[in-house]
Amino acid sequence: MILIATTFCGFVVLTNLSLAYNTVGTYQVAKMLTTPCVIMMQMCFYDKHFSVMIKLTLIPIALGVIINFYYDLQFNIRGTIYAGLGVIVTSLYQVWVNRKQKEFQMDPMQLLYYQAPISAAMLFIIIPVLEPLDNTIIRHWSCFDISIVLLSSIVAFFVNLTSYWIIGYTSPLTYNMVGHCKFCLLLLGGAIIFHESLAFNQTTGIALTLGGIILYAHVKMKDNRSSPSDSTMEEGKSLVHKI
Rank of each mutant, 00 (worst) to 15 (best):
I4M: 09
A5D: 12
T6D: 08
C9D: 08
S18K: 04
L19G: 04
Y21D: 06
N22M: 10
N22R: 11
N22C: 15
T23R: 01
Y27T: 02
V29G: 03
L33M: 14
T34L: 07
T35W: 02
T35C: 09
V38Q: 04
Q42M: 15
Q42V: 07
M43H: 05
Y46D: 05
D47W: 15
K48F: 02
H49M: 06
F50Q: 11
V52M: 08
I54Y: 00
I54N: 13
L56M: 11
L56G: 07
T57K: 03
L58A: 14
I59N: 03
P60T: 04
I61Y: 00
I66A: 05
I67S: 03
F69V: 02
Q74C: 02
F75L: 14
F75K: 04
F75D: 07
T80E: 14
Y82W: 13
Y82D: 11
A83T: 05
A83W: 02
A83N: 06
G84R: 03
T90R: 09
T90P: 07
L92M: 12
V97P: 05
K100S: 11
E103A: 13
M109Y: 01
L111Q: 07
A116S: 05
A116F: 12
A116Y: 07
S119H: 05
A120W: 14
A121K: 03
I127K: 01
V129Y: 15
W141Q: 08
F144E: 15
F144K: 14
I146P: 03
I146L: 09
